[in-house]
């Protein structure tokens, strides 16, 4: 094992994002991840659930290249990688529109193009009318929407979400889940979503992976059979409840 993590273009058949034998031992000796192998294609939305501290964020940091794994390799095109963090990380000195335009700015799009992209993204997340608001006057859910819109401007082929809705209330979270699921359908990206919430996982994904306690390993995998678009009332479907129960059991077994 050479531990090479150089990005390889998505030209081969392994999917838009693939992990091959990823292991991570931090310099202080903490072993966070062990033998993680799976891949995600475009049109797939995979959610990882796992106990706190099992290495989920570490996995995303490795996927994005912010962190080098100590074993294994990642294949992904990092040119226009979408990555939504746990907190919105909006720049407080920029308005909603300016925040949404940031990534397009960093990628060198011209003013007209930026404006077009940000308008479209703001419409997609339903923030019309708030373009000129500063983050300090937005609610938690609106900040998260802004953060989503910012990432959407890049039309990323691969979209990473690190517990983005952990800090908003239940109702808002359900709305945001419905929107994310709609965006997934319309944009067709490959999604990797981290969460603590089983119902969120089952509601949005094509597949749910369960991670064990640290060091994190994939201990169970569930295909979600529901088609898209998914309606809010799916959450009351017996089949939905059954699947959620199975995931929950696997999660308990993993700790």
């Amino acid at each position: 094992m050479k531990g090479e993590t150089d990005l390889v273009m998505t030209s081969n058949t392994n999917g838009a994002l693939s992990f091959d034998g990823i292991g991570m031992i931090f310099p202080d000796g903490t072993e966070a991840l062990q033998e993680i192998t799976f891949s995600i294609d475009r049109g797939e939305f995979i959610t990882v659930v796992g106990p706190s501290g099992c290495g989920k964020s570490t996995l995303l940091r490795i996927a994005s290249g912010l962190l080098e794994p100590t074993a294994g390799s990642v294949e992904v095109d990092r040119d226009r990688l979408g990555y939504v963090f746990q907190d919105a990380t909006l720049l407080p000195w920029r308005t909603v529109r300016q925040n949404v335009e940031l990534l397009a700015e960093l990628h060198g799009f011209d003013t007209a193009e930026r404006k077009r992209l940000s308008t479209a993204a703001i419409d997609l997340v339903g923030l019309q009318g708030f373009e000129n608001h500063y983050p300090k006057s937005l609610s938690g859910g609106m900040k998260m929407r802004t953060s989503l819109a910012r990432t959407l401007t890049l039309k990323p082929p691969v979209f990473l979400f690190d517990e983005p809705f952990g800090a908003v209330d239940e109702i808002t979270r359900e709305h945001l889940n419905e929107e994310t699921q709609r965006l997934f359908q319309s944009e067709g990206f490959a999604g990797l979503f981290i969460t603590h919430s089983i119902s969120e996982a089952v509601f949005m994904s094509t597949k749910v992976l369960v991670m064990s306690n640290r060091p994190g390993r994939i201990v169970a995998s569930f295909d979600v059979p529901f088609g898209y678009p998914r309606q809010p009332q799916l959450r009351f479907d017996p089949e939905f409840a059954l699947l959620s129960g199975e995931v929950s059991l696997a999660l308990r077994g993993s700790t």
Partner: peptide, 23 residues
């Protein structure tokens, strides 16, 4: 997190200084 965002999108030193650190 903000620095990570700039790193992720390959911002160079000057851009980081101008658009993140100064403001």
């Amino acid at each position: 997190g903000m620095h990570d965002l700039f790193t992720l999108h390959h911002a160079n030193r000057l851009t980081r200084l101008r658009k993140l650190m100064f403001p």
